Simulated scan of single mutants.
Amino acid sequence: MEGANLTRVSEFLLLGLSEDPRQRRLLFIAFLSMYLVTGLGNLLIILAIVADPRLHTPMYFFLANLASVDVCFTSTTVPKMLANHASGRRGIPYSGCLTQMFFFIWFAGIDSFLLTAMAYDRYAAICHPLHYATTVTPRLCGLLVALSWTAAFGNALTHTVLLTRLSFCTHNQVPHFFCDLSPLLKLACSDTFLNQVLVDTVGALPIIVPFAGILVSYTRIAAAVLRVPSAGGKRKAFSTCGSHLCVVSLFYGTLIGVYFSPMSSHTAQKDTVAAVMYTVVTPMLNPFIYSLRNSDMKGALGALISRKPGFIK
């Protein structure tokens, strides 16, 4: 723990997305708008699922959990960025930076595991429809959600605890709009070998293992659908997976682009743009993807919005 005692930096400076004051004002308006849309959209998804008994199924149970986590995920980074833009300050305390990084890694991991659980749900529904009700039980759904939170928590805690052993000297400018693990490791003035090894091994598991599970699930789904004789049956089967596939592509496409591409191709600007995609844009788009492509969800949202205030309980 010697490295922790050598820490000289009491706060970090988040450089944000732009130095230009005019651009910063536009960015403030844009990110505030996206944050409000994200919160409202995901809240409506949750309320619609809770209010409509037809949506009390495993698929929508996972979707409600995903919507909740997306709000938390966005709230770890955007409010602090908006506060810095509004106040003109860029500083974040050392403890606040580590706390933000912990919750960012935690909620990102939960998102990843939940997307895998949703892929398994679709696999069971399409490939084993006769056994679906006895396979994907409420108990199993609750267990999968609990495991998602627990596994992601362990991963986030490991990286955060190991970061506290590093010392940070005079360089405290983070070329990002939030405290991410990679730029913080680059600022450390002590040996980061152990941290980097764990990033490449343990840290990669919450992305690689769930992504592999999703690929296996959809490989089997595709094989099952191709055996369906009618074109209408194939379209119906694929339509239940379309929304999930769109979300998976957005989420993992940007994550893999940032954390699994060659280091020589990385620039601060490219990494920041990709981070904006998976921390802000994807959580904002998820409610639209699931509502616009799903007739049951559109019906539930329409019923929820059309209710008179006096009838909402």
Rank of each mutant, 00 (worst) to 15 (best):
I29V: 07
A83N: 15
F62V: 07
S87R: 11
M34S: 05
S33F: 09
T137A: 02
V37S: 03
V145I: 15
Y120M: 11
L115H: 09
L130N: 08
V136N: 01
T57G: 11
L40K: 05
P21L: 08
L47R: 15
L63E: 08
E19R: 13
S148Y: 07
T76P: 00
L66M: 13
A48Y: 01
Y132N: 01
F153I: 14
S68Y: 13
P21H: 07
R54V: 14
L55E: 05
A67L: 13
F62R: 05
A119Q: 10
I110D: 03
L143G: 10
P129A: 01
Y123M: 14
W149M: 15
T77A: 14
I105K: 10
P21A: 05
F107D: 01
A146E: 12
H56V: 01
T76R: 10
P93E: 09
A125Q: 06
I45H: 03
F31C: 00
N84T: 13
M59I: 10
S112E: 09
P21M: 11
F61H: 06
N65A: 14
L36A: 06
A117H: 12
Y123V: 07
R22C: 09
L143N: 13
L147K: 10
F107S: 04
Y123L: 15
A133R: 08
I49F: 03
R24H: 10
S33I: 04
